[in-house]
Design a protein around this nucleic acid. Structure first.
Lengths: 139, 139
DNA sequence: GTCCTTGCAAAACGTTTGCAGTTCA
DNA sequence: TGAACTGCAAACGTTTTGCAAGGAC
């Protein structure tokens, strides 16, 4: 599914197709570098010099809500974004903050991640997201 | 290992035992609510009304560096902290931000997390932390 | 024509830093 | 005594918000 198809499929939710959104999503789908909002901003600015960071965040949040992209909370202050919303696994460098992904079953996770990526793995963080029993009753 | 033992064992690294640090660590070890820095601040303030947020962060970062606590990057802006530094699994409510933990092997992860916690699991984020091949060569 | 979206600026937020005074060892 | 720590306040970087102008449908 490419950027145009995704944005068209969002039209019936009252979400408009704009060239800025197209550029943002196309960039996210074309790279596997897990860019920060700032990096996406710089990239889209080359095509739309007047674009604002607010628009980047607006679009990223919209796409995230509709599960077309994934936000990776980073530990340091900024988040990184991944155009591939399936649950795959990420390896982050604690020194340069680069994020690399890999796909596999989950036996001996740290060792496997090290093997597949060449990283020295020190630890990992696994967080499931969902709705807790109390909030399920409220809504 | 309780708060006093941990802080005493850090003395030979030039890290001083202070009552504020004791209160912060004691609170973290006594709860399984994965509090934010702000929540820890409010709690410690009851015992030390003059304590500052800076001291909370100072202490949390120190304990994190020495692997006595775990920081959980949250997706929203703030982090949560866990006094149990072993790699166990966390479930976060996307509505109230509560974090619950569970322990288990990693087969059919989302389903298992749902079973164990009663959450409706929508997705999860797994991030390994380590040093990438390029950074290994630099240092 | 409607209302969603944009760009801009200011604000909010969590976290870090700088410093003078204090406390631990 | 001296280095580490505290509290305070200001600074920082990321993200959100408010609003008037613009653009999609």
């Amino acid at each position: 599914m490419d950027a145009i198809e995704i944005l068209k499929s969002l039209k019936d939710k009252g979400i408009r197709f704009t060239p800025q959104r197209q550029a943002i999503l196309e960039y996210l789908l074309s790279t596997d570098t897990h860019p920060t909002a700032e990096e996406i901003y710089k990239q889209v600015k080359q095509k739309f010099p007047g674009v604002s960071l607010g628009t980047i965040y607006n679009t990223l949040n919209m796409l995230k809500e509709h599960n077309y992209i994934l936000e990776l909370p980073c530990g340091d202050m900024s988040s990184r974004f991944d155009g591939n919303p399936v649950n795959h696994y990420h390896v982050m460098c604690t020194q340069c903050s680069k994020v690399v992904d890999f796909h596999n079953g989950l036996i001996d996770m740290d060792e496997l991640a090290a093997e597949k990526t060449g990283f020295e793995i020190h630890t990992h963080s696994l967080i499931f997201y969902g709705v807790c029993p109390e909030c399920q009753n409220i809504n």
